[in-house]
């Protein structure tokens, strides 16, 4: 099939960007969206032009690296799918496809479709962890966890941190990401010691990164490639409020006897 691509090209973070139009000819319906872009880039290289910069890594939908808004939808038109797992059979001959980067102030554009998502790393550093003893692995089922809790934690843990929630949110809010992390560890016994600090710290870091505010549009859950339910946001709200109410400044984080 033959396609027309309108791709956002931007040299660097502070240079103005614009849409460039490219023709993708003879695209097989069996290849993935990223392979289609690879083909366009090979041709551009052959013509001595600069290829389209886009991020990718595992190409099997688990790393969360690919990040592009395809025809107004983060990761494209198929629900529960990353851009790398999107197949060209979802498009038809003659389609015009607009490809844009994640657009958020907290995700500055590095080049073309590549954005800087280190704001997510800083949110994780503020509490997306548990304190566990290093050493040999504990016995399986040494810590009993009720099945519904394990399931809820697992659903939230499916978050791959791609940032599609931010890209989809009309407010550029990161609350589905933060909610997934807070909910994931909050459902598990191992996550209890830092539970309050996690909710407070991660939300405040998300605010500091200048993400927008959640106003319950629910576009995030709709476009999450891992289909994380927006209920994690409600769970985070509850954890955050409870932590704020019973907040006591920590006396000492760790000590030696």
């Amino acid at each position: 099939m033959n396609l027309t691509l309108k791709v956002w090209r931007q040299q660097g973070p502070s240079t103005p960007g614009r849409f460039e139009t490219y023709e993708a000819k003879g695209v097989s319906e069996h290849i993935s969206f990223l392979e289609m872009l690879d083909g366009v880039n090979e041709r551009l290289l052959g013509e001595g032009k600069e290829p389209i910069a886009f991020e990718h890594d595992c190409r099997e939908g688990i790393c969360g690296t690919c990040s592009m808004v395809i025809n107004g939808e983060p990761h494209g038109p198929v629900k529960g799918t990353t851009a790398c797992q999107l197949h060209m059979r979802m498009f038809s001959d003659g389609n015009v496809i607009t490809i844009e980067p994640w657009r958020a102030r907290a995700f500055p554009i590095i080049k073309d479709l590549v954005v800087d998502r280190s704001a997510f790393d800083r949110i994780i550093q503020k509490g997306g962890f548990i304190s566990a003893n290093a050493g040999s692995a504990p016995d399986g089922n040494a810590v009993p966890i009720p099945k519904p809790d394990a399931d809820a934690a697992f659903e939230a843990a499916a978050c791959i941190g791609c940032g599609a929630c931010v890209a989809a949110c009309p407010n550029g809010s990161a609350m589905l990401f933060v909610g997934a992390k807070v909910s994931h560890l909050g459902h598990l016994p191992q996550g209890q010691p830092e539970r309050d600090l996690r909710a407070l710290g991660m939300v405040q870091q998300a605010d500091a990164e200048l993400f927008g505010n959640c106003t319950n549009h629910y576009e995030c859950g709709e476009h999450c490639p891992k289909e994380i339910d927006v209920k994690v946001i409600a769970e985070m709200n509850r954890d955050f409020v409870r932590a704020a109410i019973r907040a006591e400044e920590p006396k000492q984080v760790a000590g030696s006897g």
Partner: peptide
């Protein structure tokens, strides 16, 4: 604050889960 969180708007917007009211 929410306006400022997305300084460059999308060229294509396809609302799906949000509503006219929201």
């Amino acid at each position: 604050a929410n306006k400022a969180a997305r300084p460059v708007p999308y060229a294509v917007v396809v609302p799906s889960a949000s509503t006219y009211a929201s």
